[in-house]
């Protein structure tokens, strides 16, 4: 047990594969019958908040996304998710509600595995820290205007907030750029599939 092969192959490779099977492969097998939806399938029906976004910021929306359509919705969700990752929003906002500690009362329905079986969670954004609140039930909790103001200057609508201001997603006249629209569309999508 003190030889090259034992250390490298048994300790190094074999134990990894055992652990990987138990903790990584088995959950995949458990969920194998739940189909994985593509972005196009998710975006087939744009949400009410997205439609409202095209009204609230009509000039900017038309400039950046044209009309409300499955294509423009998919585009906005994709970009919004990418920006959410680029700014590491997920390091301060988790995306799952646990069945304990009154989280269902605070945030909404407890999360289930099938909710995450789609391309938007590739990679998943569960998060491990809540410096701000969980966002998986965020859809419809605030208006688009609130979300936009909060993104530009969090303290203007939530005086206690310690979130950074993302002013670079707005132009000199404090109007949203394409990125701000996409981020709000994405955040308002989170949990929109839940019947409230």
């Amino acid at each position: 047990m003190e030889r090259f092969g034992a250390s490298f192959l048994i300790a190094g490779v074999l134990t990894f594969l055992l652990g990987f099977f138990l903790q990584g492969v088995m959950p995949i097998l458990t969920l194998r019958d739940v189909p994985i939806e593509t972005l196009e399938e998710i975006a087939k029906t744009p949400t009410a908040d997205f439609v409202q976004l095209s009204v609230d910021y009509s000039a900017e929306f038309e400039r950046d996304f044209g009309e409300v359509s499955p294509q423009s919705f998919a585009e906005a969700l994709d970009l919004g998710r990418d920006l959410y990752i680029a700014e590491a929003c997920w390091h301060c906002h988790s995306q799952f509600v646990r069945p304990i500690s009154n989280e269902d009362i605070r945030f909404g329905a407890v999360s289930t595995a099938e909710e995450y079986q789609n391309e938007m969670f590739l990679p998943h954004l569960f998060g491990t820290r809540r410096i701000g609140p969980d966002l998986i039930r965020e859809a419809g909790k605030h208006s688009n205007d609130w979300q936009m103001a909060h993104l530009y200057d969090p303290r203007s609508v939530a005086p206690y907030s310690i979130m950074p201001a993302y002013v670079w997603y707005f132009d000199d006249y404090q109007r949203p750029l394409r990125e701000a629209l996409a981020l709000v569309a994405y955040v308002q999508w989170l949990g929109s599939w839940e019947t409230k």
């Binding site: 995949i28 595995a113 391309e119 969670f121 590739l122």
Partner: peptide
Amino acid sequence: PQFWVPGAAGAAITGLFIHD
């Protein structure tokens, strides 16, 4: 988790990664 395994199963794998 980036290309093939979404959602909860992907989370299991990133959990493994954090810990490993």
